[in-house]
Design a binder for these strands. Structure first.
Length: 311
DNA sequence: TCATAATTTCCTGTTT
DNA sequence: AAAACAGGAAATTATG
């Protein structure tokens, strides 16, 4: 059974720490990792298999013993929460400097999945893209078993919005099967990965073939845009007609549709259907009409990231 | 859980 | 005639 993020019980930040469940304690830890950009290995989750009541009773010494350097951060943040019911997220930014050791990227691992799909590889796999992407280096945690915290909190399933299927991520060698949609998002960095996988700035992502692909993260127009942005490795699919105006043309419309379908795990995608989705973008001003010219579209004011000097 | 965004699917009609 | 374009309508699939 997959536990989804405490929908019925409220999010951790909506509840006083005293009343947190173990799961909410865990959410809090994840949040701290996220907002402080910490390495997941900074916090030994197994030391925090406790509910809110227990957590609130822990002393600074106990936090330090349990989490080392990060203990101080955890403790002071918790103290803050205990006396301030409100939890606006900017209050969580750490004022402490926790040293995070970053592993060197292992080039041999980086090469391991290169052949998998060169389009995706180039469209979404550039180091720059990934390091800049807030969403990419996140992982979804899958809680298996029966409603309580999984025994092994070192295991994460990661979702890569740029790839057609979820990526598996684990930094202690164990694996967990993910079913359905889990909801927690964390940041994790690991030092090694076996099997197909790759490193990005110290984050290792591993592909798990048992996981079913499902769409997420990237919208159609972004998918199109990203093909356009990688002309070297993706020749002949779509071409700029006027780069500065954002006008482009499909050269191999059905091939693009197939690729889109592959990404969405839908092998019956066609240009006919893809183009219907494209036409819906007109109203949202993600695309502008270019009439009289077949297979030609133009990015609208709500499309971002296609200009040459745009970050 | 239920509403919703973003397609996906299907379709009829028009245009190139 | 074949391939695109236009949109309406309804279904589907994740997500909050």
């Amino acid at each position: 059974m997959t536990v989804s993020s405490g929908f019925f019980g409220g999010q951790w930040h909506e509840v006083h720490p005293q009343y947190w469940t173990k799961y909410q304690v865990w959410e809090w830890l994840q949040h701290l990792l996220d907002t402080n950009q910490l390495d997941a290995s900074c916090i030994p989750f197994q030391e925090f298999d406790v509910n809110g009541e227990h957590l609130c009773s822990m002393s600074l010494q106990e936090f330090t013993r349990a989490a080392g350097t990060a203990g101080q951060l955890l403790y002071s943040n918790l103290q803050h929460l205990k006396w301030n019911g409100q939890c606006s997220s900017d209050l969580f930014q750490s004022t402490h400097n926790v040293i995070v050791k970053t592993e060197q990227t292992d080039p041999s691992v980086m090469n391991t999945w290169k052949e998998e799909n060169y389009l995706y590889d180039t469209s979404y796999g550039s180091t720059v893209d990934l390091l800049d992407s807030k969403t990419f280096c996140r992982a979804q945690i899958s809680m298996t078993t029966t409603g309580h915290l999984p025994v092994d909190l070192h295991t994460f399933a990661s979702i890569d919005p740029g790839f057609p299927r979820p990526l598996f991520l684990s930094y202690d060698g164990t694996a967990v099967k993910q079913s359905g949609t889990s909801t927690r998002i964390i940041t994790a960095r690991i030092s090694s990965v076996s099997g197909p996988g790759r490193f990005f700035g110290g984050t290792a992502l591993q592909w798990d073939s048992e996981l079913q692909p499902y769409p997420r993260g990237t919208h159609l127009w972004e998918f199109i845009r990203d093909i356009l942005l990688n002309p070297d490795k993706n020749p002949g699919l779509i071409k700029w007609e006027d780069r500065s105006e954002g006008i482009f043309r499909f050269l191999k419309s059905e091939a693009v549709a197939q690729l889109w379908g592959k990404k969405k795990n839908n092998n019956s995608m066609t240009y006919e259907k893809l183009s219907r989705a494209m036409r819906y973008y007109y109203k949202r001003e993600i695309l502008e009409r270019v009439d009289g010219r077949r297979l030609v579209y133009k990015f609208g004011k709500n499309a971002r990231g296609w200009r040459e000097n745009e970050n």
